[in-house]
């Protein structure tokens, strides 16, 4: 009996988070004011973090909040404020054939996902890190351990990737000194 109540509660929480997630995502792409879009996006990120918690991945949930909802959204808002988006605000939503075609395929893909979920044809493999194992070990420890042993090489390569990204951003935005004359 008690288990059933827990299940029901979990299901209700999931339903709430999922609906918030979907609603916020729709608001992100349908809103015309970029600042509002960004704020709705924060809500999407927070709701996604909630989904991670429900999947027993507290560490990823926290990282999601700190990195995405915190740092990255901050940057996006900065960029939005620095750019002049008045024109965008005043423009009307126009009907475009590309939009109609895109919408058609989006609906098609969504029906595909519904079909797959309802018939449960998608069966993946279960990895070695089950929720029980992760809970017993501790989230941060599990992530840290594989990151610095199994995935040491990709981890180091990622640092090069970040260097390339930073160098690229600097070189593209740097004021170029007058060279000739």
């Amino acid at each position: 009996m008690a288990e059933n109540v827990v299940m029901l509660f979990q299901w209700l929480v999931f339903l709430g988070i999922a609906l918030v997630c979907i609603f916020a995502s729709i608001m992100v792409i349908s809103n015309k004011n970029p600042v509002h879009c960004a704020l709705w996006m924060v809500l999407t990120f927070l709701a996604t973090a909630g989904l991670y918690v429900m999947l027993h991945s507290q560490f990823i949930a926290i990282v999601q909040v700190i990195v995405y909802a915190g740092a990255i959204m901050m940057l996006i808002l900065f960029v939005v404020m620095l750019l002049d988006l008045e024109v965008e605000l005043r423009s009307r939503l126009k009907f475009l054939y590309s939009k109609a075609i895109g919408g058609f395929f989006a609906v098609l893909l969504m029906l595909g996902i519904f079909y797959a979920v309802i018939t449960r044809v998608l069966k993946g493999n279960v990895g070695s890190f089950t929720p029980e194992k992760v809970s017993a070990m501790g989230n941060v420890k599990a992530v840290g351990k594989v990151l610095f042993t199994d995935y040491l090489f990709p981890f180091e390569v990622a640092s090069i990737l970040l260097v390339v990204g930073i160098v690229g951003a600097v070189i593209m935005s740097k004021r170029r000194e007058a060279r000739k004359e």
Binding site: F153, V164, I171, M172
Partner: peptide, 24 residues
Amino acid sequence: SLITIFLGLETMSIAIYVLAGLMR
């Protein structure tokens, strides 16, 4: 592994995006 290949691809691509736009 898929992750090494992906990181290699991204390192290459990001460097190339920047190189393509260097003549500002």
